[in-house]
Amino acid sequence: MLKVENLKVSYGNIKALHGIDFRIDSGEIVCIIGANGAGKSTTLRAISRLVKVEEGTRMTYDGKNLLDFPADQVVSELGITHVPEGRRLFGNLTVMENLKLATFARKDNDQIGKDLERMFGIFPRLKERENQKSGTLSGGEQQMLAIARAFMSGRKVMLLDEPSMGLAPLLMMNVFDALKEINQQEGTAIMLVEQNARLALQFSARGYVLENGNLVLEGKSADLLNDPEVQKAYLGG
């Protein structure tokens, strides 16, 4: 349903992505693994229309040309949402305000109410801290809020940039369990970008390996986990 072909991105003279092809199918969980600087975050930013793509890039979502939509409409019209690296919550706003801001362009008030209940069901901690400034939350709570906020803004495809970063293992498991719940119950497709390759491959159904702006491998995550090359380069031998 989300199909990307020949994605090319440059920052000035530096080529970040050399023309990569990938797809995200409805309701699936996919991951991109790769080293620091391989172009993982850039890939997500390109889908979210936060960086300019070069001539020749084709991106379609449900038959619509993604390049016709500015960044805010990728979220509000297409339902493709993005949890950025480092979460980027609005620390000066309360938990509730962060969630409400994400529904800025939505008009389906009934569904907004239901979605909010759903998120508070999955993340009861957020309900407890509803009126607290999001800047005062712990790291795990912040990641939960970032995910809940993304879900409130667009529920079809969720792009996650390093969700495990800075989280203790137990919290990390909570976050990934919640993501699985959202994926299974709401049908939200998830694209995950991770430096923690083992975690990402265990969590996802399919995976891509990105090296220096090129996709060098793709396949079922289970197969990638057993691939000697992948094991050597990303799974610590």
Binding site: L50, P70, D72, V75, R88, L101, F104, S153, G154
Partner: peptide, 8 residues
Amino acid sequence: VIPLMGVP
């Protein structure tokens, strides 16, 4: 990150 909230 404002556009990521669907806010123009």
